Simulated scan of single mutants.
Amino acid sequence: MKRNWQLPCLAVMAAACAATPAWAQKDATPATPATPASNATSDTPAVEPSAIHAIELMAQKLRTLKSFTVTADVTNEDVLDSGQKVTYGGIVTYKVRSPDRFFASVDSDRKQRSFYYDGSKFTVYAPRMHYYAQRPLANTTVAQLVSTAQEKYDIDMPLADLFYWGTDKAPTSTIQSATVIGPARVGKIECDHLLMRQSGVDWQVWISRQTMLPAKLVIANLDDPTQPEYSATLQWDTESSLADSIFTFSPTSADHLIKISDDAQTKEASP
């Protein structure tokens, strides 16, 4: 979507619990299951504490991941001047090794881009056109890199919220309503389904009960009367090792170096 949504964190704790959501458990006190939205009454608070607790736990887990690959099958609705919606598809892949190794690729209906950070140099590559740009960027964490790309070079990384959740960039205090919809599945993954509202945004997240990682995310833009949506279904790998070569860009003879400006005029939009 053309707006860079910064949502509160979905933290992920590795815990499997078939009957009761892992985030609803207590060490000494039996858990009281959250009331699904369909059974909610007028006395149900706009912000359900159990929903906020689930988000905070997922955020904590995301912050503990030291190395991971996540692949997202994404769809993005664009609204034409006629009011008609057009849906674009794509695949987003992240490979991250904390604190300072980063690779991302976007392969969508409209563009291909790859982003590399090897701890000292940031590279943006357009494989279809064989152009790449590089800037030195030392002593930068992955989260700082994502922020710098947006703030300095006007590059919005897709699903950037994965790196903001659980930080002061995405406080839960901005949530206006939070509801536990109930159990659900994403493919064969048993999940808990949450619905949130923030200023100008409705968003849903499906949290895996086995890993407590987000399995699906849907964001609706309420500022547009047609409410276009961005959706992403995510697959995680937190076990495989990631070699240094993954994060280093090696140009071929067909690739051409161009300049990247500190005051970028062309915005790299997320798919």
Rank of each mutant, 00 (worst) to 15 (best):
A72R: 01
E268V: 13
D161Y: 08
T69D: 10
P271A: 12
S50W: 06
P33I: 03
E56G: 01
A184K: 12
L217I: 12
T71G: 05
P127E: 11
A178T: 08
E190Q: 13
L242S: 10
L7W: 04
I175K: 01
A54K: 01
S114E: 14
A269N: 14
S98Q: 15
A18P: 00
A149I: 05
L62T: 03
F247H: 01
K121P: 01
T64V: 09
F102H: 01
L80Y: 03
V74S: 04
F247I: 03
S245W: 03
W5Q: 01
M58G: 14
Q84H: 11
W5S: 01
T167M: 05
T32R: 13
P21Q: 10
Q235L: 12
I181M: 11
M129S: 13
D118V: 06
S208D: 10
G200W: 09
V74T: 11
Y131C: 01
V218L: 11
V79I: 15
A232W: 00
M58K: 01
K188C: 00
Q25T: 14
P21L: 10
V79H: 04
R3T: 14
L213N: 05
K259W: 07
Q144R: 09
S241T: 15
S253K: 15
T41P: 05
A133S: 15
V92A: 06
K121S: 09
H53D: 12
S240K: 12
E239V: 15
I175G: 02
A51N: 01
V106F: 07
R101K: 15
E48R: 13
T75A: 12
H53W: 05
P21R: 07
E77R: 10
A264H: 08
S42G: 00
M157I: 15
S250C: 02
Q204P: 08
T87D: 08
A126D: 14
S261D: 13
A243T: 13
V70I: 11
P30W: 06
Y116I: 08
P36W: 05
V218M: 13
Q227E: 15
A170T: 08
I189W: 00
V201G: 04
A215F: 04
M196K: 02
S173A: 14
I55P: 00
T93A: 11
L62P: 00
